[in-house]
Design a protein around this nucleic acid. Structure first.
Lengths: 338, 338
DNA sequence: GTGAAAGCGCTAACAA
DNA sequence: TTGTTAGCGCTTTCAC
């Protein structure tokens, strides 16, 4: 690994000049510039990122905190984040918290503000207090999928109108003619899908049905969770013609449950999800869902974080709202049979 | 962000002593140790990783190169890698290459040996020459899923006996009584699944069938690829009773194709994959497949890379072989109907 | 235009 | 047991 110094010696200049050439700073004579460039090429010189970061006082990476990168939604988001970062010459560190606040805190303590200039937080079950502390230590934090655009969390965030998403999903079912609709809501405790469910309730009420009376079950936000919940829901309410789900994974589970119960989807049971992950397109029947602008959210999150890194005061507490979620009708929903 | 120096001043000692306390190096008096620890706590001091790395001459992260983290197999692997790294205090940088050697090279140039102490390479379509160059610059490289334990690539690697995997898959089909078996092989050009197919052929031949005459199609290593290939295969050979696939994603696609063609799986068509990704468990019917020890491979890869970082000479060119792949029988295979 | 010098935050000899 | 010194590779201000 050649260093700046070695390049400088070979080119017969000082490190400062090499640095200037490489970063297009200051004024450098064309002749020296050429000599320097040749030396760089000859030695195969590559800048030492941590050293540069140290000298510049800014960290070379961004951290993405997720509960588990193996959750099918996160990789799509992480990919978009990495693409955005790459364009601006930064690197992505993945932090799996296992949904454990301790692990999350340990990560924040270790890298926020030193290795990582800032941190992107997906639903990773982190303590807000820890995030605040992280901010105070000089590493901006951006919440990546805030559910309520009109109800800011007090931390900079990218918000997606999930209330609207829930509403669109419910409305689709209602417009198809469904009246007996069951709801499966992810992770009650963290309340993470509350806005989606509220959107569902609002649509039901608007249609003259009493949303609060619609059967509802809280379940883990996984395929298995959706599967089990659907079986239970259907056991208790065999007359349901449709299942609303606050996320795609449980919706996929709901379809499997229906299959196992001998209920053809969508003929005997309609199923709808929220998010539109890749898998939604690939299931049979393909899942009707409300698509959330994942890539846009990732890009906004990166841009916001970068702004915060540059000018912490200016962007403090800012809420970036993505474009609206949109209904994607596929094969898992249809009119109820007569 | 408090620095070592500030801690030292507050504790009335020099930075060197603080460093010694923090790293349990050298001998430090109990009294000073306490004072230092108090100062650390009071100031909320956290070591500056890049600075430490610079001083120690070792990079604080490991890079994982994948074509796209959104490919469903990689997150499972990445999770296991991150867990292993976390245990030893290192951090994971994700590099998506989009399957583009240029992008891969750019990444290697930028971080290998500086930001990242070493690089883990999953099938990312990288030039071997670039990997060699990376090694020469002092950043060890480990290939994470080498397909042929007995045919080393000339680079340190973790090898999985995918030939055996192919063989086990084919043998399962044969033992069920299938004779007209079609094969779908991922990505012919890169030859990345060749060993798996050879295992299939060997099993066919061993059963007295001429493997080379079995219908085979090369397809992209995706659900869609498997879907299209299966439709084509079945159109050309309607008498097939089973489909062998070199990976789970195409196998899942094959099941969808069968569903769309009105062929019940496994009654009318058996389908088998290789790898055992999470989705394999979740499909309906659940996919019969040959499980590959993903977590073990990830852990071996991390361990090997760490060894290489410590003592490049000692572990050079080493091949770590994982335990053997194992057949996992689920619902997508059955006896052919009479 | 180019160089000299100081410093980013930390570690690692060696000296005291 | 603790301090001194030098230096990791780079940037940057300020002279020249």
């Amino acid at each position: 690994m050649a260093t700046l110094n070695e390049v400088a010696q070979r080119a017969g200049v000082t490190p400062a000049t090499v640095s200037n050439v490489l970063r297009n700073r200051g004024r450098v004579g064309e002749a020296t510039r050429q000599r320097v460039l040749e030396a760089v090429a000859a030695l195969g010189y590559r800048p030492h990122l941590p050293a540069r970061a140290l000298a510049e006082g800014r960290a070379p990476t961004i951290a993405l905190m997720v509960s588990s990168i193996a959750n099918p939604f996160y990789p799509e988001f992480a990919l978009a984040v990495e693409n955005a970062l790459r364009r601006s010459g930064q690197f992505l560190i993945i932090c799996n918290t296992d949904g454990d606040p301790q692990t999350g805190r340990a990560y924040l303590d270790q890298i926020a503000g030193t290795l990582s200039a800032g941190v992107l937080v997906m639903n990773a079950n982190l303590d807000f207090a820890d995030l605040r502390a992280t901010e105070r230590r000089g590493a901006p934090v951006v919440l990546c999928m805030w559910e309520r655009p009109h109800d800011p969390p007090g931390l900079p965030c990218v918000a997606v109108d999930f209330g609207l998403a829930g509403m669109l999903a419910a409305r689709h079912l209602l417009e198809l003619g469904h009246r007996r609709i069951g709801a499966i809501v992810g992770s009650k405790i963290s309340g993470i899908h509350a806005a989606r469910y509220e959107g569902f309730l609002a649509a039901m009420n608007a249609a003259g049905l009493d949303g609060a009376r619609a059967p509802v079950l809280y379940a883990p936000d996984t395929t298995q969770g959706g599967y089990a919940a659907t079986r239970e829901l259907l056991a208790r309410h065999p007359d349901l013609t449709a299942v609303f789900t606050t996320n795609d994974l449980p919706a996929l589970g709901a379809m499997q449950a229906a299959a196992d119960l001998g209920l053809p989807v969508p003929a005997a049971l309609s199923v709808i999800g929220i998010t539109d992950i890749q898998l939604a397109r690939e299931s049979r029947p393909a899942l009707t869902t409300v698509a959330v602008p994942t890539v846009e959210a990732a890009e906004l999150a990166v841009a916001l974080l970068q702004e915060l890194v540059e000018q912490p005061a200016k962007a403090a507490g800012r809420v970036c709202v993505t474009s609206a979620p949109e209904l994607v009708v596929r094969g898992s929903t249809a009119r109820p049979r007569a």
